[in-house]
């Protein structure tokens, strides 16, 4: 896998964006903080492809990121996001080796309607042996300030739902940036969470691989639409000394990537509906692609870590 992934730089990133919009799966590998990619026919092809030291057994593991399931959404281009979530789950169940756990980067539900959280919990229950780690999206908390979300999915978290945990030598940090907003609509982490983050990282060796997951991007994808986090630079400042930092987020319903030193940033597809490219159109609503083509814009992400060599192999794959 890794021998095919030597290309990098702007042209490669542009290629990845194009391929994402064409609905083609991608393999991204992070080695020493530098990320590269190649196109894939699909996630199963990736699972079956020969791997160099990855695969999750014998000192490594895999996890899956899903995002923006928006249960309760019922308009074009996808009137049945439960079905597309179920298709995503089928893809996850077909992975070999199986993921140790799932990460859901927010907007579980579309409008916090009764039963929405139940549906998500029921569908994701038992999909991975280690369960699912969630962070909320603004669609999960706008009605009640996050009370129902926290009661339902906040077990083991701190503050407004942030947490960290370690898994086979990798430090995972789930941050919440949808409960406070800076003027202009930018997401916020807030001083309490930033203080917690600084303490959380203090005892860690700089060689520890770190994976940060959150809903709104921690980089300025498109501030006019609120596609950024106002105080992200403070958080990234605490993370700057680490040799490998991978930042995963949802919110914008499309795959984009940015590399900044040892940090790589990856936005994820939704399992429910796509959104426009940054700044294209009046606002960040559902992108009205033809219904029969919507699966080309929906998908999930598989991440494989191999101990020692520190590569994180990232596969973004569409449902169709």
């Amino acid at each position: 896998m890794s021998k095919d992934e030597s290309a990098g730089g702007t042209s490669r990133r542009d290629f990845m964006k194009c391929m994402a919009w064409a609905g083609t799966g991608l393999v991204w590998t992070l080695a020493g903080g530098v990320l590269s990619s190649k196109a894939l026919a699909g996630l199963q092809a990736a699972a079956n492809a020969p791997r160099t030291g990855s695969g999750g057994r014998g000192g490594g593991f895999r996890f899956v990121q899903i995002s923006d399931t928006h249960i309760g959404f019922e308009k074009d281009p996808n009137k049945d996001p439960v079905a597309t979530l179920q298709e995503s789950i089928a893809r996850i169940r077909a992975l070999s080796p199986a993921p140790d756990f799932l990460i859901h980067t927010g907007d579980l539900t579309h409008a916090q309607k009764a039963g929405g959280f139940d549906t998500v919990a029921q569908l994701l229950g038992g999909v991975a042996s280690g369960g699912t780690f969630f962070v909320p999206g603004e669609h999960d908390v706008f009605g009640d300030g996050g009370k129902e979300y926290l009661a339902r999915f906040g077990k083991g978290t701190q503050g407004d739902g942030w947490r960290s945990f370690d898994h086979q030598g990798v430090h995972f940090i789930g941050l919440v940036n949808v409960l406070q907003f800076k003027s202009g609509g930018m997401g916020m982490l807030g001083p309490e969470q930033l203080e917690w983050l600084e303490k959380d990282l203090k005892e860690l060796s700089s060689s520890t691989p770190v994976v940060v997951y959150t809903h709104i991007p921690l980089w300025a994808v498109y501030p006019a639409w609120g596609w950024t986090t106002a105080d992200a630079q403070q958080a990234l400042g605490f993370l700057n000394r680490f040799g490998s930092v991978t930042v995963l987020n949802g919110h914008i319903h499309q795959v984009l990537q940015k590399v900044e030193g040892h940090m790589t940033f990856h936005t994820a597809m939704s399992t429910a509906f796509p959104q426009p490219a940054p700044g294209q159109g009046p606002g960040p609503g559902p992108l009205k692609v033809p219904t029969e083509e919507v699966r080309r814009f929906l998908g999930l992400r598989s991440v494989t870590y191999t101990a020692g060599s520190e590569p994180l192999a990232i596969v973004d794959s569409t449902l169709g």
Binding site: E138, F142, G143, A224, W225, G226, G283
Partner: peptide, 10 residues
């Protein structure tokens, strides 16, 4: 006031 879902709308 603002839209709680799209807080850039005020």
């Amino acid at each position: 006031y603002r839209c709680a879902i799209h807080p850039q709308m005020t």
